[in-house]
Design a protein around this nucleic acid. Structure first.
Length: 829
RNA sequence: GCCGCCGUGGUGAAAUGGUAUACACGAGAGACUUAAAAUCUCUUGGGAGAAAUCCCGUAUCGGUUCGAGUCCGAUCGGCGGCACCA
């Protein structure tokens, strides 16, 4: 009978749903396993084949884990707040909620058609007031602890559209919609103090099983650097008298302080606007600041781009170590949002400073000499940026850089003009958006009481209906126009109050959703404590409570490494400190998938017209083929181009498996020993490959087995059923169908294949009994000799030296060394 | 630019520091067929040779090692992130 996926797939999807086979059971006696994939943003384009890839992979893990005896939770939900839906609403006038409903319905249908074993009873949606009530509640906890605060921050502003723009909407410094040059505009914004957790976020990585590259990316993003903050004395004449003030400077290279030629301020440094009227070249400075504000941070940091700057005429600074008076410049390669917004310029020992000093003719003074040479370099042709030995630094001469830094900090501390300082590259999280489609920030402004938190009993602060989804002309969110929503009473004094009209960024809802899955319908707390403990801390292996558990496996894309992954770790650590969740780290293990690219290796996009719609693939080849293909196409962690031709390969494989059913005969004689060994080897290989996320090689191993079995005239039913079982997590529909037919034939009770145990293999049979002993001369293969797998070194040497081919090479040669590795002999001559 | 990753046949790729190219696609030849499709069998990194066999080959250059696709250094090329796309 022909393999017709369309006939069997819907049948089994319905069966699984009716039998409720994938429900995660709270407090089950079985060991728990919480398997999580990043929930999607339900865009109007529908499911991307890239989504299918990671959901299939984790579905394989989930299905196999159930067969291994775990109580698995594999949930799914929607991260539905965000710009694309809002923009779509602006264009069509449809309510974002309506659009979201349509999109999530479509996503859910597509997911179901692929046979993913999600526990749909736990489905969540970040835009559901019953969900965002708790997002707002967590914000209030942060607020109460002083971790949410307001600050003026620059946003992208289009003067023609009169709206704030997301970075993505700014193309080459211009508004994506109208092409107008984008300006920076200062606006009061809600900020979250993630920097308070910088050390904890580094520290927490020690206990979790993340790929090294992810840990490294996060650590570098946080960018902890230890150094010193030194107060330079700023001096200028205001027409009547000399004014003095401190200009703090952060440096990790205090050892180079005797080589400072100038002080450089960021264009946004407060000193500049404070003393605006005393700067004699103000016009020039103003022009420079305006130009700099248009540059992106990337442009400013670019070491290859020309460095520019303007001196602050009449201003100077005093180096507290030397007492020397040095000029003060402003330059945009000094960034306002890192350190103190002021840096000391040491041209001899910093590349950017060197280029800058050369261009503007500033002093270049060597103060650190390379350790190995001490030639007294006269003309410096490039910056020496490594540590070395101090020269030209008075009492610190002769010290190595590291010691010099320690001594210099003590000196600065004793003289009270400096101290040890740790700086982070990490910046606080801008948490305000002037958009409609996000969680309203639950804050009120009372005429008498000032800023007031919305009482918890009044949550959620629901999004009101609006007519227009565009922001207002003042740059405020569209909510500002809904007067009867904005105007409210102060919960403290009952007086007049206005609501905050900013909404939260899309990242808010996704920063804690993994907690909600444990108890998705609770309306008293964000999740029940006992359920959090059960799902987040019970170690599946020991069934005992431990603090390292959290989600057992969390899969997502590399693109989320420094934002979502860090933000959600921050929220969880905060909730842990508040005693609200039982583990400090949310995810015990992190894995990541590679992107699915279009044919030819370019990104899939509507504009390129190379988007593959999973619906079409399912219709043409079946869900099992799509699943299997996406797992077979390459290593799970790598980006891989789609290849429609490649799909037929796995379809043929499934057809082959299907047709094997015709050869099954329970009276069949046991196949030969080699095939039996291959079967056990395959079970072992597939088991290990799934556990190691090596799905592509697991499939190739099954292909090899099927190719071998196909050569037999008759196949015992046990072989066929074992093969089907190890295939079942990959291609669940065909496996169920084969299992049912085999069960009927064997008259065993009908039960889902997913209620079966994962097969064990015989360790002895899974080993090779014969090998080809490889004989090398100087590392080059010269002969292969069949031998027993447990050959001794002595015997292997005998065989090697007895070989005719080998004797050719060693005749008249001096054998220096013989290396034996168990299956290889290397003779060094 | 900075941080992280990757580079192997015509293509997707496989390979605990130990036989480079498993598995699959494509291509070529053949079988079956009136024919086509499907299916099955064989060939398929480059070069030399009638063959046995030999030489070269994992982006480039160099190093470590008995032995390097794998480890180290440099270079070139590609991808992800760079804080308001998610």
């Amino acid at each position: 009978m022909e393999y017709q996926p369309n006939k069997i797939e819907a049948k089994w999807q319905k069966y699984w749903e009716q039998e409720d086979l994938f429900r995660a059971e709270n407090f089950s006696k079985k060991p728990k396993k919480y398997i999580l994939v990043e929930f999607p943003y339900p865009s109007g384009d529908g499911l991307h084949v890239g989504h299918c890839r990671s959901y299939t992979a984790l579905d394989i893990i989930a299905r196999k884990s159930r067969m291994d005896g775990y109580n698995v939770m594999y949930p799914m939900g929607w991260d539905a707040f965000g710009l694309p839906t809002e923009n779509y609403a602006i264009k069509t006038g449809k309510h974002p909620q309506e659009v979201t409903k349509k999109n999530t319905d479509n996503f859910r249908r597509q997911m179901k058609s692929l046979g993913f074993s999600f526990d749909w009873s736990r489905e969540i949606n970040t835009t559901d007031p019953e969900y965002y009530k708790w997002t707002q509640w967590i914000f209030l906890q942060l607020y109460k602890k002083g971790l949410a605060y307001k600050e003026k921050m620059p946003i992208n502003w289009c003067p023609s559209c009169k709206i704030g723009l997301a970075n993505e909407e700014v193309v080459d410094g211009k508004c994506e919609r109208c092409g107008m040059e984008v300006e920076k505009r200062e606006m009061e914004q809600w900020m979250l103090k993630i920097t308070a957790y910088a050390d904890k976020l580094i520290e927490g990585l020690k206990d979790v099983d993340y790929p090294e590259r992810i840990k490294e990316q996060q650590i570098n993003w946080i960018g902890k650097s230890e150094g010193a903050e030194i107060n330079f004395k700023g001096v200028h004449f205001d027409g009547k008298s000399e004014i003095e003030y401190d200009i703090p400077v952060f440096t990790t290279r205090l050892d180079t302080i005797y080589g400072v030629s100038a002080l450089v301020l960021a264009p946004e440094h407060p000193i500049i606007s404070n003393f605006k009227f005393q700067i004699s070249n103000w016009k020039k400075i103003e022009k420079y600041i305006k130009k700099a504000s248009k540059k992106s941070e990337m442009e400013k940091k670019d070491a290859k781009k020309e460095k520019t700057g303007v001196p602050l005429v009449g201003f100077s600074a005093i180096n507290p170590f030397t007492g020397e008076k040095i000029p003060v410049w402003i330059a945009d390669y000094c960034l306002a949002n890192y350190g103190t917004g002021a840096v000391m310029m040491v041209p001899a020992h910093d590349e950017r400073d060197f280029v800058f000093a050369k261009k503007y003719g500033l002093d270049i003074k060597e103060v650190v000499a390379p350790v190995e040479i001490d030639k007294g370099i006269k003309t410096i042709t490039e910056a020496y940026t490594d540590d070395g030995i101090l020269v030209n630094s008075e009492e610190f001469n002769g010290l190595v850089s590291r010691d010099a830094r320690v001594k210099m900090i003590s000196y600065a501390e004793s003289k009270k003009f400096g101290r040890k300082q740790i700086n982070y590259h990490l910046r606080d999280w801008v948490f305000s958006r002037q958009h409609y489609w996000g969680e309203p920030i639950p804050i009120l402004y009372c005429e008498k009481c000032g800023e007031v938190a919305v009482p918890e009993k009044d949550l959620p602060v629901k999004l009101p209906d609006v007519k227009k989804y565009e922001p207002t002309e003042t740059g405020e969110s569209p909510l500002a126009n809904i007067k009867n929503w904005v105007n409210t009473k102060c919960p403290k004094c009952g007086g007049k109050a206005k609501r905050e009209t900013d909404t939260m960024p899309n990242w808010a809802g996704s920063s804690w959703y993994f907690l909600r899955y444990t108890d998705p319908k609770n309306n008293k707390v964000f999740a029940d404590k006992k359920l959090l403990k059960y799902w987040m801390t019970i170690c599946p292996a020991s069934q005992k409570e431990c603090n390292k558990g959290g989600v057992d496996i969390y899969n997502g894309g590399m693109e989320h490494t420094t934002l979502h992954l860090l933000y959600s770790r921050f929220w969880n650590q905060f909730l842990y400190d508040e005693g609200l969740v039982p583990c400090s780290e949310p995810y015990g293990k992190r894995t990541s998938h590679g992107m699915v690219l279009g044919e030819g290796g370019i990104k899939m996009s509507k504009s390129r017209g190379n988007v593959i719609n999973p619906d079409n693939v399912v219709e043409k080849y079946g869900a099992d083929t799509l699943r299997l293909y996406e797992m077979f196409m390459g290593p799970f962690g790598d980006a891989i181009p789609w290849d429609t031709k490649g799909v037929v390969g796995v379809k043929r494989f499934l057809e082959k498996v299907w047709l094997l059913g015709e050869k099954v005969n329970d009276q069949a004689p046991n196949p030969n020993d080699q095939l039996k060994r291959l079967l056990h080897k395959t079970i072992k290989g597939v088991t290990e490959d799934i556990d190691n996320f090596k799905f592509n090689t697991a499939i190739s191993k099954m292909m090899i087995l099927v190719n071998e079995i196909s050569k037999e005239k008759e196949i015992p039913a046990t072989y066929y059923m074992l093969l089907t079982t190890i295939l079942s997590p990959f291609a669940p529909h065909i496996a169920e169908e084969i299992w049912e037919r085999s069960s009927l034939k064997l008259r065993t009770p009908r039960k889902s294949i997913f209620e079966q145990k994962w097969p064990a293999y015989n360790k002895e049979l899974a080993k090779d009994d014969e090998i080809e002993l490889v004989v090398q001369i100087n590392g080059k293969v010269r002969d292969r000799i069949p031998a027993s797998a447990d050959i001794t070194e002595e015997h292997a040497r005998e065989l090697a030296f007895a070989s005719e081919k080998i004797s050719k090479y060693i005749e008249g040669q001096n054998v220096k060394k013989v290396i034996f590795t168990g299956k290889l002999v290397n003779i060094v001559v």
